[in-house]
């Protein structure tokens, strides 16, 4: 029983990371209809920023997290303003090609700068220690991830549901033309949300180094899971993405530990079934 709970805790921690990876994609897909297969590259970028700061400059772990988010967010805004905004009006195929190209290039740059190997990350002692939680021993890092993910999700939901900025984004997601008509600067909103999405992916990437590892194949490694979170949660829905990410993380972890022979199939079979029976996602919004 306690084994099961610790596996679940693993899965939920994994789900939290998936949530951070995918929330930016969910919002940009809902808002700009931009199919960004390169979103994983932002997570990778955050990961490398954290590793360089921590291992190269001895910056404390907790400080590397906001740094990763800020740097990645800035890169996201610059890319959006310079290139990506010209891709929004293009048909899906061009978007897919552009973003696959971006992901390939990002992976190659990481490979050239840092080499193809896994990046080591020395976590502080208080994160590697095992802690008792609800009578079960799990590593502090898992617990930290879960708490961090909850806080991040709460903040995001508050931002989108209770602030003027959030109201503008929701208005633009629902009906872009009407939102422009009442004077919302949708163009600037696009840049801000794209940067915010990139920042959260970067944060997730920095957190993921100690849990999932980091190497130049990162942008494609979690692509399917991230797209799944978005498709199931419904593009543009934060609560939906959160629920989908946790469910996918938990299901994936449970089946991989309990039934390893079929564990790798379950998540992809789930994806295909979901898309056949709920092509609009659980939240019911069309992509």
């Amino acid at each position: 029983m306690s084994g099961l709970i610790s596996i679940l805790a693993d899965g939920i921690a994994y789900g939290m990371l998936l949530f951070l990876f995918s929330i930016g994609l969910s919002v940009t897909l809902g808002l700009m209809r931009f199919i960004n297969l390169a979103h994983g590259a932002f997570a990778m970028c955050g990961g490398y920023v954290a590793v360089v700061l921590l291992n190269g400059f001895g910056v404390p772990f907790l400080l590397t997290l906001p740094a990763a988010a800020v740097v990645t967010g800035l890169i996201g805004v610059v890319l959006e303003r310079s290139v990506i905004r010209h891709v929004y009006p293009m048909p899906e195929l061009q978007q897919v090609l552009f973003s696959i190209g971006l992901a390939f290039a990002a992976g190659a740059v990481a490979n050239i700068l840092f080499g193809p190997q896994q990046q080591p990350m020395l976590l502080p002692d208080w994160l590697t220690a095992r802690v008792g939680f609800l009578g079960v021993g799990i590593t502090g890092y898992r617990l930290f991830l879960v708490l961090f993910g909850l806080v991040a999700a709460g903040l995001l939901m508050a931002l989108f549901n209770f602030t003027l900025f959030g109201a503008r984004v929701r208005a633009a997601v629902d009906d872009r033309r009407a939102a422009e008509g009442i004077g919302i600067n949708v163009d600037r909103l696009f840049a801000l949300t794209f940067g915010l999405g990139a920042a959260f992916a970067g944060l997730g990437g920095a957190l993921a180094v100690g849990f999932l590892g980091l190497d130049p194949t990162f942008p494609f490694k979690y692509l399917v899971l991230v797209l799944m979170v978005v498709a199931i949660g419904g593009p543009g829905s934060i609560g939906g993405s959160f629920a989908a990410a946790i469910a996918i993380g938990a299901i994936d972890a449970l089946f991989k530990y309990l039934v390893p022979e079929v564990g790798n199939y379950v998540i992809y079979a789930l994806l295909v079934l979901m898309m056949i029976f709920f092509p609009r996602g659980l939240a019911g919004r069309a992509a």
């Binding site: 897909l29 399917v224 898309m275």
Partner: peptide
């Protein structure tokens, strides 16, 4: 069935399966 995004996802998922 479905639109371009679900099609991409389904084909991607079948590929990994």
């Amino acid at each position: 069935v479905g639109n371009d995004l679900t099609r991409l996802l389904v084909t991607l998922g079948i590929g990994f399966l």
